[in-house]
Nucleic acid binder design. Structure first.
Lengths: 146, 146
DNA sequence: GAAAATTATCTCGATTTCAAAATTATTATA
DNA sequence: TATAATAATTTTGAAATCGAGATAATTTTC
C-alpha cells in the first residue's frame, strides 16, 4: 500500500473535497433560490466586480469550455442581465457587459450570499480562518511539475 | 459593504474553491485517462474500499441525486464493473457490488491516483497537512443551523 | 389488519456541460 | 499580397446530472 505521506495527502484530499462540496451545496441553493444557476451567478459576479470581459476570458477565469460560455452568455443575455458588445479593434472578440438589471440582481443576491458563506464558515474562528487561507493558497497554485 | 469577518469568510471560500478545483481537475484527468468518469470512479472506489452498498447509501456518500445513481450504476453494470444484488430481507433495497473486473480496474488506477494527489499536495509539508486536515474537517460537517 | 406515511428505486424530461468541428477574423510568413 | 497559422466565437451532438413523479415495498398508526 501507499506510504504515510501519500496516506496523509489522500486524507487531505478527502476532507478538502467534503468541505468544498458541503459548503458549495448550500451556497448554490441560495443562488438558485434567486433564479440563477451557479455558473450564471459566477459570470455575472465576475462582470460586476471585474468589469466587461471578452467571452474567452470568462471561460479562463471560471473554468468553462468555450461551448459552455456561448450557452451561458446566451441565457444571461435572454434574461436581459448582460449584453454582448463587439470589440472595436478586433472583430473576433466580443465583450460581455453586465446591464443595470444585472447589477441590481447581483446587488440583491450578494449580501445574502456573503452572509450565508460567513455562517457556513462560523465553525472556524478568525485566526483559524487566516491559517486555512494561507495553507489553501499554497494548494491552489498553478500546480507544480508532474 | 460586509464586515471584516464576512470578508475573511468570502476569501476563505474563494481559496477553498480554487484549491479544490485546481487539484480536482488534475485528478479527474488521471481517472478519465483510464476510461472512467469521476462519478464512476467514486462509486467503484467506495465499493472497493467499503464493500457492498445499497444504492441509496451510494447517493448519500458521494452526494448524488437518486436519478443519477440509477444512471451511473447502470453504466458500471453495463461495463461489467459492478453488479446489482437484491437484498434478501428487504425487497426495496438493492446492493451494488463490485466485480472482480471492477476490482482489477481500481487496483490499476488507485496507485497512480494516490501518487498524483500526493504530488499535488507536495507544496505543504507534513505538519501543514495535519493542520489543514484539522481545519477542513470542521468545515465539512453536516453544517450548523441557518 | 387496513389505511396512511415512509422509504427505495426507477423513469422521464429538461438543463447543463463538454468536445470536436465549423466559421470568421487576424497575424505571420514567404 | 497571397498563404498559412493562429485565435475567438458559435454550432452541433452527446454525455451527465437533476428534479419531479411513478412504482413497489415496508413500517407506523389507528
Amino acid at each position: 500500500m501507499e506510504n504515510d505521506s501519500t496516506a496523509k495527502s489522500l486524507k487531505l484530499f478527502i476532507v478538502l473535497s467534503r468541505a468544498f462540496k458541503a459548503i458549495n451545496e448550500h451556497v448554490n441553493k441560495v443562488i438558485q433560490a434567486n433564479g440563477l444557476n451557479p455558473t450564471e451567478f459566477a459570470v455575472l459576479e465576475l462582470l460586476y466586480h471585474k468589469g466587461d470581459q471578452p467571452l474567452q476570458q470568462i471561460g479562463a477565469k471560471i473554468l468553462l469550455a468555450s461551448g459552455s460560455i456561448t450557452y451561458v452568455v446566451d441565457k444571461l443575455e435572454q434574461k436581459g442581465l448582460l449584453k454582448r458588445i463587439a470589440c472595436p479593434t478586433d472583430r473576433r472578440v466580443i465583450y460581455a457587459s453586465i446591464t443595470d438589471e444585472g447589477k441590481n440582481m447581483i446587488q440583491d443576491i450578494f449580501p445574502e450570499h456573503a452572509n450565508q458563506i460567513d455562517k457556513l464558515m462560523s465553525s472556524l474562528n478568525e485566526s483559524e480562518k487566516d491559517t486555512a487561507i494561507d495553507l489553501l493558497k499554497k494548494l491552489g497554485l498553478p500546480a507544480g511539475k508532474f
